[in-house]
Amino acid sequence: MESTRTKQAKDRWNWLWEWANPVKFMALSGKALPWVIGLTVISLTVGLVWGFFFTPEAINFGSSVKIIYVHVPSAMMAINIWVMMLVASLIWLVRRHHVSALAAKAAALVGVVMTVIALITGAIWGEPMWGTYWAWDPRLTSFLVLFLFYLGYMALWAAIEDPDTAADLTSVLAIVGSVFALLSRYAVNFWNQGLHQGASLSLDKEENVADVYWQPLVICLAGFVLLFIALLLVRTRTEVRKRRIHALEMRERMADA
């Protein structure tokens, strides 16, 4: 017999598992989407306009510090989107919730775009700062490998016809790739070499950039997170609909046969 404590713990997580039901997911995400889009537009507009027009030159970086408002949020999202894909993949492997597998699939395109933005803006910023667009620095290299993992992940989804098999294999790839997602974040801490500096944002106040740059940066970061959530909802809804179309087409074929 199930203990009261176990039952209470299950009840506590009910709100999460409701999203796993495709019908409930479509209803909940349909209601949430306009709010998420509105907050995304507000935070991105405020953060980017503040960062571009109203921040002073930095002592070390000059006006090139303004690149931080597109480089840091995109780099953080590139890593965190992979982490989200890892969690969704684990949920699929353990609980077989289709929406979680579809959410991981839906996130990949946004993740690869964020990785490309981080690589491009990093290279453009690197040239005036380090004198080179690219160096085989631990963080840059692990970011490049993360980009290749994103491409591999998307290619694997496209290559396998059976959706459940594709979800299984891409989930394994997400677990393997998470090593490089973590390396992209922490490589700089345990390899005392390379050009890339440490974290720009940290809970340790001494490591943070100055407040005048930090405040708009946090708003930009919130904007990028919200942008990802909005795109994730739109893209997962598309994947759920595709799955429904596939089911209806299979039913039509069965009826014709």
Binding site: F52, E57, G62, S63, S64, K66, I67, V70, H71, S74, I117, I120, T121, I124, W125, E127, P128
Partner: peptide, 15 residues
Amino acid sequence: LGKYAGAILTSWAAT
């Protein structure tokens, strides 16, 4: 944007 104008504008435009 001084001497970094090209780098800043290219980064933002690409993003």
